[in-house]
């Protein structure tokens, strides 16, 4: 992939990717690192994107990298819920697939939409509130419930 094309993708998707990362990690620098790592991989030709899948790939990558960081963080942040002893990356990948399946099978349709809008499409709280016809605070509370359910299922020790 040419550098110009990568720059175009960066300009188009960076804000959403950064938003997803911040939603999960909070830390500004860490969030920027996650997004930068993904584009560095593209610049070094280590990743080839299929036409039409760029946005989906980029946002999914951010989400996955954030989950991994949260699980492998060396200094646990009390209450983050995703912090566990380190295990191998294959287990991480399986866990991420399991989380997607859990969201599809156990959350209400509205929660699935909110989860998708925030974590898969990188929408702002404002955009989600407008799409669902609810307040921003209601969006936060829905996302809070979604995350609690995921933690209950995948990391009960943190609760």
């Amino acid at each position: 992939m040419e550098k110009d094309e990568i720059q175009r993708l960066f300009m188009q998707h960076y804000a959403k990717m950064y938003r997803v990362a911040r939603t999960m990690l909070y830390d500004e620098q860490e969030s920027e690192d996650v997004v930068s790592d993904i584009f560095e991989s593209l610049l070094r030709g280590q990743t080839v994107l299929m036409p039409g899948t760029e946005e989906c790939y980029l946002l999914t990558s951010v989400r996955n990298q954030c989950f991994k960081r949260l699980r492998h963080v060396s200094t646990p942040i009390e209450g983050s819920g995703f912090v566990e002893p380190i295990d191998d990356s294959d287990a991480d990948d399986e866990r991420l697939i399991d989380i997607d399946e859990f969201v599809a099978c156990h959350l209400s349709e509205q929660e699935q939409r909110i989860f998708r809008l925030r974590f898969s499409e990188g929408c702002s709280y404002e955009e989600i509130a407008a799409a669902e016809g609810i307040s921003r605070v209601a969006v936060w509370k829905h996302l809070s419930h979604i995350i609690t359910e995921i933690k209950k299922q995948f990391n009960p020790k943190s609760l």
Binding site: R22, T23, Y26, G79, G81, Y125, V137, W140, I147, T148
Partner: peptide, 27 residues
């Protein structure tokens, strides 16, 4: 960070204004 994760887990402990402020920061 601690405040952020606590707000995610226990939004009932925070006022709407506090949640709005956190959302403004994240967005």
């Amino acid at each position: 960070k601690r405040l952020f994760f606590d707000m995610q887990e226990h939004p009932e402990n925070y006022s709407d204004d506090q949640l709005e402020t956190m959302m403004d920061e994240l967005d």
